[in-house]
Design a binder for these strands. Structure first.
Length: 423
DNA sequence: TCTGGGGTCCTAGGACCC
DNA sequence: TCTGGGGTCCTAGGACCC
């Protein structure tokens, strides 16, 4: 059996943890740039605030209902996430961290009549140790455990936040009670198609044939999904730490940017971030892509972003910030067109190899070791305080393109100056 | 004038996830 | 005036080969 442990309204819960006066009150958290609503407390959901809605469109009802608003504070959430996952790891031998607020657990070896008791124990311990409420779904497959979790969250009063789908009867009942678009793996495009075929619930989908799924539901992906719904496990637990195959950093600008110089500064900053991520997983990359996004419309209702990109293949893989910046800058110059209104930029690296397996080009030779020492020094300083004290000159110090974060909470758990005050 | 079939590799883009 | 960011996996289609 597999379990999914999912934090309830994670970002909102993190914010509320450090402001107890907000307990039982509506809270929302905004995306980068204060653009969209990405997390809502139950009270905010009850007031009809929609997920992923643009903030400015909801501003009025948010003020009218006295909803607390926070800009996203990812260092705080990252630290709280680590605490939750550590708690799970203490009590379960096989934890697969799936996202910042979710983990799959392999429950093999736990007797079936103990699953409920064990799940409640995990839930209570996590909540006691971290202060973050969680919901747990248990079933033979990952897809079914996600169904269980969803239903447990929906009916907190009835389920107390835990649902076990162990028997076929329980699974049937659950699938009949879940709408097709709520199934993990069914997105908006597939949901629309399925509805047209009069497939409306999880149970309807479960009863479709494999041939049909292959033809109409994304080939092998659809086949796998239906098998999982039937209790046949196809999506296995991931083992070990897997290194990322693609690493990217991109941001909307705080306001539109027209100048090449500013775009270069922004891109150099994103390259720096990407290089850090590469080094943290002890990898190096051979291909770097830069993309720019324009929105050349003066009318606010016309939001038609257009993206263009260029890439460069390096002679040898590297994770050195300065080398990656040196490759990225000509790409920016190649993409930039005067007069365009740029709203976003990003950097992506791929063809990632382990740092100790770099195929050196004949001309690469000694420079590398010096750069490695330099990078480690910078990382030790920056990873420690995360304030980018040490930067390369090309990053600039002007902040025209920097994102807006007007309502950010403190770094309660990771910065000495901002620790929570207790009298 | 006739004009196969099967395979690999690569890239772009779609769909999906949180 | 204002619409996030970071990933994975899969497929289709083009280029190329014999």
């Amino acid at each position: 059996m597999k379990a999914i442990v999912d934090c309830n309204c994670f970002y909102a819960a993190c914010e509320r943890l450090f402001q107890p006066s907000l307990h039982g009150k509506p809270v929302v958290v905004l995306s980068n740039n204060d653009g969209c609503i990405v997390s809502r407390s139950d009270e905010a959901k009850a007031l009809g605030i929609k997920m992923a809605g643009p903030y400015y469109q909801h501003k009025k009802e948010i003020e009218e209902n006295n909803i607390a608003v926070f800009s996203s504070n990812y260092y705080l959430y990252g630290d709280m996430s680590w605490r939750v996952m550590e708690t799970l790891r203490r009590h379960s031998p096989h934890v697969e961290v799936y996202s910042v607020d979710e983990s799959f657990l392999d429950l093999t070896g736990i007797a079936e009549n103990k699953l409920l008791e064990y799940s409640f124990f995990l839930k209570q311990t996590t909540e006691m140790w971290t202060g973050i409420p969680v919901s747990i779904g248990v079933a033979p497959t990952k897809v079914l455990s996600k169904v269980a979790n969803k239903l447990a969250k929906k009916d907190k009063a009835g389920t107390k936040g835990v649902m076990i789908l162990h028997t076929p009867e329980q699974q049937k009942k659950a699938l009949q009670n879940i709408a097709i678009e709520e199934i993990w793996g069914v997105g908006s495009a597939s949901a629309k198609k399925l509805r047209m075929h009069n497939i409306n619930t999880g149970w309807d989908l479960r009863n479709m044939g494999a041939g049909w799924a292959r033809k109409n539901l994304g080939g092998v992906v659809g086949v796998r999904l239906i098998k999982e719904l039937r209790g046949e496990s196809c999506i296995e637990m991931k083992t070990a730490l897997e290194t990322k195959k693609i690493i990217g950093t991109s941001r909307m600008f705080g306001k539109p940017v027209y100048e090449l110089k500013e775009i270069k500064e922004a891109v150099a900053t994103y390259v720096t971030r990407v290089a850090e991520k590469l080094r943290r997983q002890k990898s190096a990359a051979t291909t770097i892509t830069v993309f720019l996004v324009t929105n050349n419309y003066s009318n606010a209702y016309e939001y038609k972003p257009a993206r263009s990109s260029l890439y460069s293949i390096l002679l040898f893989a590297t994770s050195a910030t300065n080398l990656l910046i040196a490759h990225a800058m000509p790409l920016v110059e190649g993409l930039y067109k005067e007069g365009n209104k740029y709203i976003k930029a990003g950097v992506i690296v791929n063809d990632i190899v382990p740092e100790d397996a770099i195929q050196f080009n004949l001309f690469a030779k000694v420079v590398h070791s010096n750069e490695k020492v330099l990078m480690e020094t910078i990382d030790n300083i920056n990873f420690g305080i995360r304030n980018d004290l040490l930067k390369f000159a090309s990053l600039g110090t002007k902040t025209g393109w920097n994102m807006r974060q007007d309502k950010k909470s403190q770094l309660y758990t990771t910065r000495w100056e901002e620790l929570v005050n207790v009298r």
